[in-house]
Design a protein around this nucleic acid. Structure first.
Lengths: 335, 335
DNA sequence: GCGCCTCTTCAAACCGGTTTAGGTTCGCGT
DNA sequence: ACGCGAACCTAAACCGGTTTGAAGAGGCGC
């Protein structure tokens, strides 16, 4: 026999479908005795409401969407997504919702959102990796799709946002280096069109003053190349603040290759505080972020928004510097 | 105005809902002229069929599920999932299906599958990280849920499987090391209850003969600890074959800390060939796998299976050794 | 005994598709 | 002129829930 339907439960309990529906949704107006009979019958039959049928009648998908617009290889290296997704899921599964993923090539992000919205597969979406003037915001507004973004303070996004502030982390890194005597503190950033990359860069620029900047792409290869550029320049920096750990680790390898000792001749900081940061040599000073928490918060906000509540922006604790062995005073010529 | 329904299209084209449905699904028996009129009307109105309604009437979810049972932190470090998921998505989006993710604590994996199956949210699932005697197989059979596994040759899983053979990669690594003169080639493996970990271990054991083995957990911390154990043992190995890159990289850092030069005094190999492998110092010799491809193949198999086709197991090209700087002849006492 | 109110339950409509069992219409053979 | 089959299309049932309007039952005051 196939799965029991609400009709079977109704028949077993000797009532109508409507009454069963009322009981199962905890609505008032059903006699205690009847309620009990229905619940017993439902348990007896092992009834689980059909998600599809419910979705159709209340026109909700009971799912939210996430569009990942990165090349597969890069995705694998980025510790952000899995942690963020885990956080999202944490909230969603508590609330009986599902997460629908959509991985698309970087240039087809809009199509991804359209697809999710067009077929009403999801009730809302997350918007990650905000761009500087992000077209997705307008698109989603046009589609009437609820959304929550991971945004930065002072950059209105038009939707409720989890406000992540990268600046304190970057500033802490720069100040930590400055405190160690560094004066030429370079920065290897991410693609400038990403809001987070540009904000990290700006924070660095304000704290570090005049110093070399290289734009890379968050990949190890990009970090390595950027480091080569910096180290082979006329007046190489004594410290480099990287926009993520991956580039920083690749950068340390390049330094080694160039015979530049870390941290004796070059101090290095990362960003993300990936697990590996603590297990490379020297261990990487990095900025700790908490994508798992962001995921949880973002999902809560999105679900509330979908249910029609008014959702304010949600600030999360600022990033925090974790000092390890890759940073040291300048001039220390040990080794 | 809200989204147009099939009824609106029918009215606009002056036909019945049924006819519209026929045309939109490309079924024969509709006059060319009518077909054209209907398609025009649909385009005109910007009609997109409601996924929910279709799902209800044909009782399909048009989605497949993936249960990730790992702790969030570990998830972030594992390059496998994102790449696998990207591959899956590649196939799915071509075929109009969606991917529903479910992230659960490691001990609640079964509940995750039950949840996906119970509400008919998905038409099929992937089973990853097979265990040695995996209870999920029986569970899914009981639930009547189509599934595709990522399995290993000679280990029947009861469902169609993408057959990934890790052995050639491990054997190549060991033979490469043996060819360089190594005789004590240790292995740092993953948790023994994972099929892939136990198979890698067995392949290593057969190729390397008597040599130290340490079980770790695929994490950097675990890899570091295992390496400490090996290096501080009475008769330390001259080479270590790690079951993944993360542990290998952490291991290299430990070696450095112990004053054991890689590759001069210790050769090291990883597994996965993550991007970072090429950008640490020395660059890590590793075994290249292709989770993106596995994802694509697995998704194709799963969709075919759901449509009732008979699906054979799918072998994929074996893993391949990528030699880099972390391996060198024994006895080379350079530096 | 009657009207009225409250409490409980039911039947039916609805969500937006797919599918099936019939109708029409038309051309054609005889 | 008639019967018949093919081609085309429609109406209605169905998927499995939710929601609404109304009906029935019982209790109360007068």
């Amino acid at each position: 026999m196939s799965r029991p339907t609400i009709r079977d439960v109704a028949a077993a309990a000797g009532v109508s479908k409507g009454t069963v529906s009322f009981v199962l949704n905890g609505r008032p107006g059903v006699a205690e005795e009847t309620k009990r009979r229905i619940l017993d019958a439902a348990r007896e039959l092992g009834f689980t409401p059909s998600h599809q049928a419910r979705a159709l009648s209340v026109s909700r998908a009971f799912a939210v969407g996430l569009v990942l617009a990165r090349e597969p290889e890069l995705l694998g290296a980025d510790p952000f997504f899995p942690a963020f997704i885990a956080g999202v899921e944490r909230t969603l599964s508590d609330r009986g919702q599902a997460l629908v993923l959509q991985v698309v090539p970087e240039d087809q992000e809009e199509a991804g959102y359209r697809r999710l919205a067009g077929s009403k597969r999801v009730d809302g979406v997350f918007v990650l990796d905000l761009h500087v003037a992000d077209r997705r915001i307008a698109l989603l507004e046009e589609l009437g799709m609820p959304a929550v973004t991971i945004a930065r303070p002072d950059v209105p996004s038009g939707f409720p946002a989890v406000l992540v502030d990268d600046r304190p982390g970057i500033i802490a890194a720069v100040e930590h280096l400055a405190g160690l005597g560094h004066r030429r503190i370079a920065h290897v950033g991410g693609p400038a069109h990403f809001l987070h990359a540009s904000i990290r860069r700006r924070a660095w620029a304000e704290a570090a003053g005049e110093a070399p900047y290289v734009e890379a792409d968050f990949s190890a290869a990009g970090g390595a190349q950027a480091t080569r550029d910096l180290l082979s320049s006329e007046n190489p920096p004594t410290a480099i603040v990287y926009a993520n750990d991956l580039m920083a680790i690749a950068g340390m390898a390049v330094a080694q290759e160039y015979g530049v000792a870390v941290p004796a001749h070059l101090s290095v900081t990362g960003f993300d505080n990936t697990e590996l940061a603590g297990y490379v040599s020297p261990a990487l000073t990095s900025v700790r972020t908490d994508p798992y928490l962001w995921g949880r918060k973002a999902a809560e906000a999105l679900l509330d928004l979908i249910e029609g509540e008014h959702v304010p922006d949600i600030p999360v604790p600022p990033a925090h510097l974790v000092v390890r062995g890759s940073t040291a005073p300048t001039g220390e010529k040990t080794r």
